[in-house]
Design a binder for these strands. Sequence first.
DNA 1: AGGCCGCTGTCATGTTCCTGTCATGTTGGC
DNA 2: GCCAACATGACAGGAACATGACAGCGGCCT
Lengths: 223, 223
Amino acid sequence: MATVMVVDDEERVRTLLAKSLASQGHSVVTAGTASAAIERLESRDVDLIVLDLVMPGLGGLAVLDAVNARKRSTPVIVLSGVTDVGTRVEALDRGAVDVVAKPFSLTELLARVRRNVGAARAPADDRFLDVGGIRLDVGRRRATFGSVSASLTEREFSLLAHLMRRCGEVCRKEELLHDVWHLDFDPGSNVVEVCIGRLRSKLGQDIPIETLRGVGYGLYEDA
Amino acid sequence: MATVMVVDDEERVRTLLAKSLASQGHSVVTAGTASAAIERLESRDVDLIVLDLVMPGLGGLAVLDAVNARKRSTPVIVLSGVTDVGTRVEALDRGAVDVVAKPFSLTELLARVRRNVGAARAPADDRFLDVGGIRLDVGRRRATFGSVSASLTEREFSLLAHLMRRCGEVCRKEELLHDVWHLDFDPGSNVVEVCIGRLRSKLGQDIPIETLRGVGYGLYEDA
DNA sequence: AGGCCGCTGTCATGTTCCTGTCATGTTGGC
DNA sequence: GCCAACATGACAGGAACATGACAGCGGCCT
């Protein structure tokens, strides 16, 4: 059916997955480290990757990046022991088609492999960010919320994208200053508030951006 | 959660990282030079190190070596302004578990810290506090009880969290004044009662917070 | 060059929200 | 019933945030 690469540092997990996938009719390639995986990517034609994020040495994200760097990007299903939303979102943002939490159900994983193999996946993954009813067109820097659609400036875009990626979590003001403004100190002004204000006025007051007095801002799926 | 040591010669970066890590629940130790770091390594029990490679005087690699020389080696995440592959590989060779390029995303760094520290602890426990039918979203300062959901102010949150953590026990008024208000004396007013009142009115009169006349308040599982 | 325009940080001002205090009402124990 | 302890509603000072205006800057066109 297809060639699947399994990347995991644990020998047991590797063989378990290899056998299961083989019994489903897939050819299987395995790698125990991120660098081995990246290397093997060059030589073999792989249709799908099952990737453990947490590995000693170079992490799984490096593999994700390597995959993205290639022209014909291969779908990646990420296995993650880390459950927090941030990591999941980050993995998805970096091009993973799916994130499965460890411990995982084998049948479920196989189903996900089946779904993503062959089916030419929608390229929507890296073009759009969909969170909390907001759709952000990454290439065009354009956001749509309900009936409102607006084009964002670089700063606004960067801020909104950050909040969306960290959906469900609170972003402290210093965090935003560091990641969006690339400042390691508080400029003593209210840039963040102003930029949030600009977002709210462009997309409507009812976008799910919550203010947490004394802490920062957060974007939430539920109202 | 864990003790993290931050080693960087730039004051600003140090404090930024210290605050961010602290807000994630870690204890933080900082060092401005490699030698200070190595020294502090002897006296403190550190679970993870965030290390800047480029520092005046003894470089970061010296710290890496010192860590490796110890029996129980501590995971090290290297911050590097140098982008070339050689340095990255050398750092990894010398035992770093991860290398992050400067300028770095705070979010990403925090995720990596979590990942490398997380192995020891059960995850997701710190996101919610579930006691007596009340669910408290710690990051968001939002409480849900039955069908009622309300966002809490800093004081209310702090008070409720304290009661929930000490569930089943009576919290004397002075204890609350000390731990929630950080007062070592009785202000002679009824702050506590007022704040309890605000909690009750936000979450409904039937939340399991009991008044113990002459003593204080307690939160109980059974109604 | 000169002028226009959009982006962005800053500031002054308005607004909201938090929080301790007090006055008053209510409750519970004796 | 009395008193102490607690509950409740209102209020004011202040902090944190929201908002509108403005100016510097750089790109772009003429």
